[in-house]
Structure formats: C-alpha cells, structure tokens
C-alpha cells in the first residue's frame, strides 16, 4: 500500500520536473550569463538600478489598480448572478468573451477608443470636444480590467453559489443588518474565492506587455515590456531572464500573501 502511494506520485513528479522545475532552472541559469555566455552577476546588479526599480514599482502599482477595479466590479456582479433565475446561462454569457483571442479584443479597443471612434462620437453628441482616450493610463487599466473580469467572477461565483443560504437567514433572524450580514457572514465565507480571483488577476497583470504598447502606446512600461525588449531587440537573454527571475519572486510573494490560512478552532 505504501509503495503504491509513492509510485502514484511518479507521473506528477515527472511533470513537475520537466515543466516547472526545468524551465525555472533554465531561467536561473540564463540570468547568470552575460552577452558572451560567460558567468556573471552583473545582470542582478543592473536590476537594482533606478530604471528597473521604478519599472518594478510601476508594474506593481498598475497590477494593483487592475486587480482592485476588477474585484470591485466582479464581486457585486457574481453576487447578483447567483440571485438570477438562469444563473448558469448568465455566467456563460459573461465567460464567452474570454474565448475570443486577446489580441483581437485589444485591436477592437483601438477602434473604439480612437479620436474618431464611437466613444468620442458619443462625447461629441453631448457637445464636448473629442477626448484623448487611447494611449492613456486610463485606457490601459480599463482594457486590462475588461480582460480579467471573467477570471475574477468565476471563483467568486462558485464560492457564493456553494454558500448555504440558511446562514444568511440565520444572521438576519438574529437581528443583523444587511450590511453586517455581508461583512460578518457572506464575505468571510467567500474570501477563498476572492483570493483565487486576485491570484489569477494580479499575477498575469504584472507581466502584461502587448496592451502596454497597443493601448497605452508605451506610456506605461511594465516588467513584461522590458523582458520582451531584452529578448527580441537587445538579444540579451541574460538580462531578460534576470527580470523574469524577479517577476517569479514577486509572484511567489503575492501567492504567500493571499494563501489560504489554516482554520483554527473557531467555526
């Protein structure tokens, strides 16, 4: 029996070794090479210069903004979805746009937000001058939030849907207001859904790169942009890998931050 349980790990270990550990190992290895393929730690030294540190902070800030607005929109949406008659149909309708290629959706926004696009046409109807919407940090956050909403809604919806409604009735019967019920009962019971939603949004948001060019016109520079440039233009795989190592570290930290805490004795 013991042998069997150990053997059952083999396929998973093999998978993890080949597709998780080996790539990370390669990134670490490359991060310690210079342009001539010699061993160096200069890339790490280079990362701790003001340019890259500012870039890390900007990436962090925008990822935070994107995650925050995605959550603010997604939580109430998921909540009202669970109250709907055909909730699974509605959920489906929200998920379908995520089947469309990300780049296509991004290109569509170039047209929508353009000076002669529909949004500015509406603004003009109300008698205002056309606004510069495209190539601003506003449009960047907007498009990113739009893209991540389905990924945030699904885990929150599942958590809300699984919740036993009698707990809410009990809370209301015992005299708690709607707000207190939300704060003390509903939200704590769905916090796991919120946490996984934050993970699937925050982590990819840190390394967005195509949208930074197409929608923000390179006025928002993230670590993803820098990695792309190092690999494709400067052909400096070492520096590109070094930035990737820091990205992995930040992601690891954010996973720790949002990890599931072991429940104590309190129910």
């Amino acid at each position: 029996m013991k042998f069997k349980s150990k053997a059952s790990l083999i396929p998973y270990l093999l998978w993890v070794a080949l597709f998780v550990i080996a790539p990370i190992g390669l990134i670490l290895y490359y991060s310690m090479l210079d342009l001539n393929g010699d061993f160096t730690l200069a890339n790490y030294q280079n990362f701790f210069t003001p340019a890259y540190l500012t870039m890390t902070l900007t990436s962090f800030w925008y990822a935070f903004l994107i995650t925050f607005f995605t959550l603010v929109i997604s939580y109430p949406t998921a909540y009202f979805l669970t109250k709907m008659k055909h909730k699974h149909l509605w959920l489906m309708l929200i998920i379908i746009p995520s089947w469309i290629n990300l780049l296509l959706k991004t290109y569509a926004f170039i047209g929508i937000f353009g000076l002669y696009g529909p949004v500015n046409a509406i603004i003009e109807v109300f008698g205002f001058d056309p606004k510069q919407i495209l190539f601003t940090d506003f449009s960047f956050v907007f498009v990113a939030v739009y893209i991540f909403i389905p990924f945030m809604i699904i885990p929150i919806f599942n958590a809300l849907d699984k919740m036993n409604p009698s707990l809410i009735y009990a809370s209301r019967d015992l005299g708690a207001s709607a707000f207190t019920t939300f704060r003390r009962v509903i939200f704590p019971l769905t916090i796991e859904g919120v946490k996984s939603g934050i993970q699937v949004t925050f982590i990819p948001a840190l390394s967005l790169f195509m949208i930074t060019r197409l929608i923000a016109g390179n006025k928002v520079i993230t670590l993803g942009t820098a990695i792309e440039q190092q690999f494709l233009v400067a052909q400096n795989w070492g520096m590109g890998s070094t930035i990737a190592v820091f990205l992995i570290l930040i992601m690891f930290a954010s996973m720790l931050f949002t990890r599931t805490k072991k429940k104590g004795g309190r129910a």
Partner: peptide
Amino acid sequence: GLELLGIYNEYFLEFKMSLN
C-alpha cells in the same frame, strides 16, 4: 555589436519611462 545595442536599448527604455 550587441553590447552597444544593449546600451541604446537602455537609453530608449529610459526615454519611454519618462513619458506620461
């Protein structure tokens, strides 16, 4: 050469980051 091309890129990145 790659080394100088890298320096051009660093400066270009610095310029891009100064935009807002």
